[in-house]
Amino acid sequence: MIWMLIGFLIVLFILAKVGWPMIMGAVDKRNQHISDSLVAAQEANDALAGIEAAKAKALAEQQAEQVRIINESQELRKQLIEEARNEARAEAEKMVADARLKIQKEQEEAMSQMKAEVISLSVDIAEKLLQRELADKDAQSRYVEAILKENQPRIEA
């Protein structure tokens, strides 16, 4: 009984001092460490997911920007072409209008010249008619014709 008391108390004392608390402490510590690590891993995962999402968002934004820039430049190109075309058209129209105006002017000029010519011709004819007193109509028309024939080069001019 005394040996039992001695032996058991020695073992109890040694194990209680350097045995069980070490084992229990280490296992608890490790359990804590494992659960902490799991939480940290979860957090890191979440953070990674956040980064992933941000990356995807940025990528999408960039792509949209790209598309926008391309569209804009295409728009601009079209606009430029359109402008150039319009300008060219306006120029051409202007030139045509100028030409028309010039033609008109020349026409008018020619007209007025012709008028003046016709007038002088008529006056000449009338002069000639008045100079010749003609009775009959036939003779008159023949005469007009003769005059006209005479003045053929003038009329044609």
Binding site: I14, L15, V18, G19, M22, I23, G25, A26, V27, R30
Partner: peptide
């Protein structure tokens, strides 16, 4: 038991 305790003490 003591070798285990020693191991745990050295590097838990």
């Amino acid at each position: 038991f003591l070798p285990a305790a020693k191991k745990y003490k050295k590097d838990p």
